[in-house]
Design a protein around this nucleic acid. Structure first.
Lengths: 228, 228
DNA sequence: ACCTGAACACCGTTCAAGT
DNA sequence: ACCTGAACACCGTTCAAGT
């Protein structure tokens, strides 16, 4: 066969792997809303319908990118080599979870897709299996370990529902007056922070610190149940 | 003006309220995926574009139905009349949260829309303000109360991320063999439950019990911090 | 003031066809 | 085996028009 005479860039052939990696990059760059079968194909230099040869449908793409992130998490935490015997279980679990969180922070869209995937990917199962293993080393019964996984919930993977985010948006001091009547306690809380740290009513919640506070609360509670 | 001679059912005029109530009913009946501007209009006996006179766009509909549920929660919890002084704060908060959960269980779609609403509705703010009030009665500083709201996260409203749901789907015993090699700890956990309660490997997680376990873990932890 | 119809710019996906 | 084009059945939304 004669070499291709045309100078046109011969696109690398598609594959499930290339499709998923491009999807992750798209979500990283432009958010989950920008991840469209049509735009995904475009980025890959292919026609929209070509994707369906490598992937059943969009749902499989979402399953796939969840799996990519989960694999990235497992690679990060497996490198830790944590000792987890006896009382050391807590530090080990804590470190593992905070490492997983570091990975998730690079993929801000990941929590919302992990939440919506009903079927658990093998990688997610593997992550929880090892986490449960650390707790077993620490003396947990399977029953307590089971409760622990539920109690941790998404925190096991390194994220938590930020449903309540006071100070986000334009919660400026001038709003406090109107706030104080309807919402006396929240207003008081905000006022105290404004007093302690004037000028920082906006974005005054340290996400990382709050995550660790909640995590430690749960881990300490589990540790006490373990002692019984 | 002469009475309308035609027998055709004269549809009640639209209104923001009617639109939102119909939207809630649609989500309750058929899930969030079925909630479409076009189908919403159809249910109301109107043309799709008529909705836009009463509501800016679909996002406002989602904000609206979140608010409807939040109002329903506030009505339920305000009726409780809880005593929260001193050590009684914990029972009061617990009861309030479990009552909110009862409302949410009637609207299974509500958690996912509450999560995605960045701007907090007045009703959600009000709910958290009163919750913080109960903790203040119990002797919480504003600082601890702030941490507490973050630590509770979505649990404050009565739901928790069910990311890890072993036993859901078709996790039948025959799968356990393959599971045991790759996932020894999860397999062991499942096997123990299967032994204790044979024949119930599927759906063996009691959501309500697990929710209460996690909630109590957090509340007990907060109670200890309050004592210092 | 309240509602409508036609039209636009998107989606995901099927299916028969091309190389 | 791998990719494509045209087409279908949906979306949310704009805009000018009707009563």
């Amino acid at each position: 066969m004669v070499a291709d005479a045309e100078a046109g860039p011969v696109r690398a052939p598609l594959s499930r792997d290339r499709v998923l990696r491009a999807a992750v990059r798209m979500a990283d760059d432009a958010g989950l809303g920008a991840l469209t079968m049509r735009r995904l194909a475009e980025v890959l230099g292919a026609e929209a319908m070509s994707l369906y040869y490598h992937v059943a449908n969009k749902d499989e793409v979402l399953d796939g990118i969840a799996d990519v992130v989960a694999r990235e998490i497992n690679e990060a935490v497996d490198a830790l080599e944590l000792r987890s015997d006896g009382a050391r279980w807590k530090d080990a679990v804590r470190c593992r979870i905070l490492t997983a969180r570091q990975v998730l922070l690079r993929h801000p869209w990941a929590p919302s897709v992990l939440e919506t995937r009903a079927a658990m990917s093998p990688e997610i199962l593997r992550y929880h299996d090892r986490l449960l293993g650390l707790m077993r080393d620490g003396g947990f019964s399977y029953d307590l370990g089971h409760h622990a996984l539920h109690a941790l919930g998404s925190r096991a993977l390194g994220f938590s529902q930020e449903l309540f985010d006071p100070g986000d948006g334009a919660a400026a001091p001038e709003e406090l007056a109107g706030l104080a009547e309807q919402l006396p306690h929240l207003a008081g809380m905000l006022a105290e922070v404004a007093h302690d740290d004037p000028g920082s009513t906006l974005g005054w919640c340290d996400d990382q610190a709050e995550f660790e506070f909640g995590l430690d609360l749960v881990l300490d509670g589990l540790d006490r149940l373990r002692d019984r």
